[in-house]
Amino acid sequence: MTRTIRNVALAGASGNVGAQVLKALLAVKEFNVTILSRSPKSFPAGAQIKVVDFTSIEDLSAALMGQDAVIDTTSSPDADTPLRLIESAARAGVYRFITSDFGLDPELPGVYELPVFWRKKASYEAVKKQAAENHMTYTLISCGAFLDWCLSNGFAGLNFQEKTAWIFGDGNNVHPWTTLEEVGKATANVLLHPQETLNRPVYIHSVFMSQNQLFDIAKEVSGGEWTAIYNDMEPILQKALEDLKSGNISDATFVVQIQYCLATKALAHPWERDDNRLVGLEEWEWEKVKALVQDIANKKAV
């Protein structure tokens, strides 16, 4: 039976995704928002704040009593936090749980087989188990790569200051990109459509684009001579997996696995199902993408 969702608890509200989800929840005006926080912090007005012990299922369960939905945007590398949140939500009788996924399509074979996604895989399996055994329902948000975030921090392989590009494979694979703001908006709007988003991934995007297309825009808006390195991602992936097994771990060990996915059509490609309209998004025109790249390029040049 579908329930109207009014009381919403958000975990991870100070993170990149969580801050945008919080902003969108408060903008809807139909939700009573509770922020679950590990310590007292300052958040935007309009939300209740509960300081909870994220290591305690009992404490989390008590904090989630009376909530219709829980949104997990935490990003700790271990699986314990999301698994405790899922179990606590089920114990508290929460109707809808949105997992901290926000990435590629979990239904595509091979995506969750990469170690970088083991936390997401564990959450997906746990929430499906709760849905089968209890009355809790779930939604995942599949958004591809974060467009603005990846451009700003170099994850998209473009260095605006040095005018260098590190290309994944041949750079031609087209896949979804979504801005953090639109991820937040879509996540909030999922809760306005509980039946249509029941027990499944919701597929969103700002744009479908290849890395080369993004690189072309970067060159156009920034000018000057760029240098590009095209990388065979298979041996780079295997080296990262070997480093992981041997304990020689760095941020690059995990970053490479995601970049490998973005270069591989079988693991990242335009969604067959498009939920943009359902959650209030529209696909971007090329000029809008160009304006975003221009803005980021200008900031990097300062």
Rank of each mutant, 00 (worst) to 15 (best):
N7D: 15
L10Q: 04
Q20L: 13
L22F: 05
I35N: 00
S37K: 04
P40W: 07
K41V: 06
P44E: 12
P44Y: 13
A47Y: 08
Q48Y: 15
V52M: 13
D53M: 11
A62D: 14
G66F: 02
I71V: 01
T74I: 02
P82F: 02
S88I: 08
F97M: 03
F97H: 07
P106K: 00
Y124S: 03
T137L: 04
Y138N: 01
L151M: 11
N159L: 00
K163E: 05
V174W: 10
W177L: 11
E182D: 12
E182A: 01
A186T: 00
V190A: 08
L192C: 12
E196S: 14
T197A: 14
T197G: 09
S210R: 05
E220Q: 15
T227C: 14
Y230P: 06
Y230C: 06
M233H: 10
M233L: 13
L241N: 08
E242L: 15
G247T: 12
N248T: 12
D251M: 13
D251C: 09
Y260W: 06
A263N: 09
E272H: 09
D274K: 07
D274C: 07
D274Y: 06
D274H: 09
V279P: 05
E282P: 00
K288F: 10
A291Y: 07
A291E: 13
K299E: 10
A301I: 03
